[in-house]
Design a protein around this nucleic acid. Structure first.
Lengths: 153, 153
DNA sequence: GCAATACTCTTGATGCGTCATGGATATCCT
DNA sequence: AGGATATCCATGACGCATCAAGAGTATTGC
């Protein structure tokens, strides 16, 4: 039932390896840039951005996890670390005794407000500008296509 | 000296977020697939593939690190873990007292030979087939472009 | 009511990745 | 030759990601 060739053709292999390599190198570069210039990890940044998206900088654990597609326990560990550094705080949930809120602190807000412009500038320089609008749109379209496939199993 | 707009336009943001999301989800899926079906991590797989690329499954630390673009200490830690599980072994280097070789063991060879076909099939199913040759080539081209930018700083 | 079940979050163990540091050997320079 | 320097690899500390297990609280169904 498997008529497709087992190995990748040279052209497929080229494309795939470029993509994987890009994948690894871009992540490493962006994370390093954030850490060196803004003292936040990629994980910190993602949490802070997600919290900033809500008007009061407060979100239930569950909702936050869903909005950034993280597993519960990963979020729990991450929030524990960020609490220790004062970037966010926990709050109990009145309506549901099991639940809890994550709240952006003043320090957290300061951090993200100074980190975000720097990060955007880096993304522009490394990705958006070298590609130009057409290729960027193509990249977005291709990404969505693969994402759909991933979501369908 | 910064005439470019600070934030991303909605179109830019869409494309960028799709790409990042793809990035994260694809990695997670592939790693999980390898771990669940073949009992190897992504890091294990990368090492084993690189070693298989040489005729005798032996490589100096340094050369291995360069060929997969890893930091030296990352490789050292990884090899230590893989030694413990018997996938590779260390060998001293006669010509250079500081140096060392990493050698594929029989168990390591078995592992990669059973994992590789499975992995290729997954990559086909999730990425190569849904894209088709043209989009795959485009993805490769775009990836190379960004990689060049990364390498130039 | 209340027992069974489901939900929400936490915790501990383990592997991975980076940084800073260090020990050993080789090479270079005078 | 011998000291300075560079190269090669190892190690420890710390943060991050996943998995398995668990504690407390709500909900469901009888």
């Amino acid at each position: 039932m498997n008529a497709t060739p087992q190995w990748l053709s040279p052209a497929e292999q080229d494309a795939w390896r470029s993509f994987i390599r890009l994948h690894q190198k871009l992540t490493a570069t962006l994370v390093r840039d954030l850490q060196a210039n803004c003292k936040v990890s990629g994980a910190d940044f993602e949490i802070l951005v997600a919290l900033t998206d809500t008007p009061d900088g407060r979100q239930r654990f569950q909702d936050l996890a869903k909005s950034i597609d993280w597993e519960q326990s990963r979020l729990s560990h991450q929030i524990a670390r960020m609490c220790k550094r004062g970037l966010v705080a926990r709050e109990e949930c009145a309506e549901d005794g099991r639940g809890a809120f994550v709240v952006l602190t003043a320090a957290g807000r300061d951090t993200i407000e100074s980190a975000a412009p720097h990060h955007v500038a880096t993304v522009r320089r490394l990705v958006i500008d070298p590609l130009g609008p057409d290729d960027l749109a193509t990249l977005g379209r291709i990404s969505s296509r693969i994402l759909t496939q991933l979501d369908n199993g």
